[in-house]
C-alpha cells in the first residue's frame, strides 16, 4: 500500500515536471520543473532502497546524494546564466536592434 502510494507520487511528479517543462516558457519555471523531475527519479530510487527485503540498500542513497549535488550545480549555473541573459536582453532593448547581430560567431 505504502509502496504503491510512493510509486504513484514519484511517477506523477515526473509527469508533472515534464508537462511543465513542455508548456511553461518562463525559464525559472522550467528549471523548477526539471528539478521536480529529478526529485521524482530520486524518490523512486529511495523507494527501491527502502523496500529492499534484506534491509535498506545504501547504493541508491549514495546515487541520490550524488544526484542532488549535480542538480544543484546545474541549477546554480543555469540561474547565473539566466541573470546575465536577462541583463543582455535589456541592453539589447536599449541599444536597439540594429547591432543585435554584431556579436556574431568568432
Amino acid at each position: 500500500m505504502t509502496v504503491m502510494l510512493y510509486a504513484t507520487t514519484a511517477a506523477t511528479l515526473f509527469a508533472l515536471g515534464l508537462y511543465a517543462v513542455l508548456v511553461r516558457t518562463g525559464l525559472i519555471h522550467r528549471l523548477l520543473a526539471a528539478n521536480v523531475m529529478a526529485t521524482a527519479v530520486f524518490l523512486f530510487l529511495i523507494l527501491v532502497s527502502a523496500e529492499n527485503p534484506e534491509g535498506v540498500d545504501a547504493i541508491p542513497q549514495a546515487m541520490v546524494l550524488t544526484g542532488i549535488v549535480i542538480a544543484v550545480s546545474l541549477t546554480a549555473f543555469a540561474l547565473a546564466l539566466l541573470r546575465y541573459l536577462q541583463a543582455a536582453d535589456d541592453e539589447e532593448d536599449q541599444t536597439g536592434s540594429q547591432d543585435g547581430r554584431q556579436n556574431g560567431p568568432d
Binding site: L27, A34, M37, V41, L81, L85, N103, G104
Partner: peptide, 28 residues
C-alpha cells in the same frame, strides 16, 4: 561574448538538463 551565444547556451543547457534526468530515470 554576446547575447546570441548566451541565448544559445541557455537552450542547450535546458535540453541537456531534461535529457540527463530522463537518462537517469532509465538508470534507476
Amino acid at each position: 561574448h554576446g547575447h546570441a551565444a548566451m541565448a544559445a547556451a541557455m537552450r542547450y543547457l535546458l535540453f541537456a538538463l531534461v535529457g540527463s534526468i530522463i537518462f537517469l530515470l532509465g538508470v534507476a
